[in-house]
Nucleic acid binder design. Sequence first.
DNA 1: TTATTATATTGCAATATTACGATAAAGATT
DNA 2: AATCTTTATCGTAATATTGCAATATAATAA
Lengths: 113, 113
Amino acid sequence: MGASKTDHFTEKQNQLAAIAKALGHPARVAIIEYLLSVDSCICGDIVNVLPLAQPTVSQHLKELKNAGIIKGNIEGNAICYCINEETLSILQAFFSHINNHLQNKKSNCCYII
Amino acid sequence: MGASKTDHFTEKQNQLAAIAKALGHPARVAIIEYLLSVDSCICGDIVNVLPLAQPTVSQHLKELKNAGIIKGNIEGNAICYCINEETLSILQAFFSHINNHLQNKKSNCCYII
DNA sequence: TTATTATATTGCAATATTACGATAAAGATT
DNA sequence: AATCTTTATCGTAATATTGCAATATAATAA
C-alpha cells in the first residue's frame, strides 16, 4: 500500500507521529539546529548552509511548516522562519509521559540485548 | 531520487533523524504507548491491540528495534519487548538543547502565523 | 513425532518521499 | 519598466515505506 491507516489510530497518536516524522530527516534536523544557532530568525541563507539544492530545501521547510515545527512570515522578498515552541512541546510532553511511566516501573526484563 | 543524502550530514543529525523517523508512524507510537501501559513487558498480544495484520506489526516492531527504541530478547516462542530508555534520552537531550536556546533568546519575530 | 502457537521473512502492489532542473512568483534594485 | 534576488511550485526519476497474503521458523504441547 504505502499509505498509513491513520483512521485506525487516535488523533493524539497521529499528531505525535506527524511531528516526529517531520523531524525524521537529517536535513530537517539540520535546519532546526541552524535556526537555533543563529541569533536572528531571518533565515534566507539556509540554502547556503545545507548540502542540498534550493528547491529541495524549500520542500523541507514546507514540511516543517506543515507539521507546525517552524512558523514564518513574509519579509519583503525573504522569508522569516523560526521554531514553533508549541509544537515541539507536544513531543516533549510525550517524553515526560514516557519517563514517568518508566521510573515508576523500573522494568527488570529485556536485560539481554 | 528518494534516498536521503545522509553522507552530507553529521552523525548526530542522522542519528536524531533516524530515531524521530522511527517514531513517525501512528502504529509505532501506539506500540510505545502500549508498552508503557502494560505492567509486564511481555508483549505477545500487540497484534491483537493494533488494527494491523501480524506481518505488518512485526515489521513495525523491527523498525523500532533497528532504531534502538525498543529492545527485546527471546522468551520461548514469544518475544519480550520493552522500551530502550537510552535511545529515547537522545531525543530528550535534543529537546533540552532546543529549550535552552529558546529561553535565552526569547525570539520576538515570526509573530504572525 | 505431530500438531499448535507465535513471531519473522518473503514477495508484491500501492503509495510516499527525496532530490533536482526548469520555471514561476513577487518584492527589491537600478 | 527592466533586472536582480529570493523563495515556491511543477514535473519527473529514483528510492523508500506501508500493508498484507503466503510461507518460513522455532519453541511448546499433545
